[in-house]
Amino acid sequence: MFKNALLLAALLLPACFANADEFKVGELKISHPWSQELPSNAPTVAAYFVIHNPGTTADRLTGVDSPIAGKAELHEHVMQLDLMKMQQVASVDVPAGGEVRFAPMAYHVMLLDLKDRSLLQDGKHFPLTLHFAKAGAVTVEVSVQKQPPAGTDEMSHMDHAHAQ
């Protein structure tokens, strides 16, 4: 009996880890929240993730907050006069049956007035709460990484203040 329980636990363990960086609220799924480790004197840090909406109803991300920052804002990169600029947005639409990627050089969350820098080191995690118009709020754990995950733009936000 003990061997059967141990075998079952061993078989289920990979499934638990496979979803360790996925969070749900309503029909929305938020996957792979991450942030890149920056120097300790960086004035801001950015957070990234993917919002999946397999449902038939569109939603909207209306705001974000985190206890590690005095202020959290939704931002996007836009091309203006042959120059890539960053600007704050009030909300981000999440289409029904679609997804929205928060990534370097795209939508992202900017955390300003940083309070707890101890959580901004490689291997650490920090909470980020996403507020949706219909689905409600969900808190995700953002994984801090020395390098961006494979397949993402490697441009960091170290010179964010200069891009405005």
Rank of each mutant, 00 (worst) to 15 (best):
F126N: 06
T57P: 00
L81Y: 14
H52W: 13
A20M: 07
L38D: 00
T56H: 02
G98H: 10
D82E: 13
A150Q: 06
L114Y: 08
H162K: 15
Q121I: 14
A20P: 01
A46V: 00
A69W: 03
I51Q: 08
S118G: 02
L12Y: 07
M79G: 01
A10I: 12
P39K: 01
H108M: 14
M155N: 14
N19K: 14
D82Q: 15
F126L: 07
R101L: 04
V140F: 09
D65E: 14
V92N: 14
E27I: 01
D82C: 06
K146E: 06
P104C: 00
L128D: 04
Q36P: 00
H32S: 10
H131V: 01
L111R: 13
A90W: 02
Q164E: 15
N19D: 05
L119H: 07
T44P: 01
M105E: 02
H77P: 00
N53C: 10
L119E: 12
H131P: 03
A58L: 08
H162M: 14
L74V: 06
H125G: 03
L114A: 10
R117K: 15
D93P: 09
L119S: 11
D122P: 04
P33M: 08
L38N: 03
T139K: 08
G63S: 09
A18D: 09
R117A: 12
D65F: 12
P39E: 03
Y107K: 09
P127F: 15
P54R: 14
D21A: 15
L8Q: 11
M158P: 00
K24E: 15
T139L: 04
A15D: 07
L112F: 03
Q80T: 13
L111Q: 04
T152E: 10
A9C: 03
S118L: 06
Q80N: 08
F49E: 03
M84H: 08
K3D: 02
L61N: 12
M84T: 01
V138Q: 07
T62V: 15
E99C: 11
D153W: 10
L12A: 08
V94S: 04
P149T: 02
Q88R: 10
V144G: 05
D93R: 14
G70T: 10
A161K: 10
Q88Y: 01
K3C: 05
V45R: 02
G97A: 12
S118P: 06
H52I: 04
D113Y: 03
A69N: 02
M84K: 09
A163D: 00
D65M: 03
L11W: 06
S31P: 01
V142A: 08
G151H: 12
A135I: 08
D153S: 07
E73G: 06
H125K: 11
L7W: 10
M158D: 06
A161G: 11
M1V: 02
P149I: 00
P149S: 13
N53T: 06
D116E: 04
A58R: 05
P127D: 05
G151M: 08
M155F: 04
L13F: 12
L119W: 06
V94H: 02
V94T: 15
G97C: 12
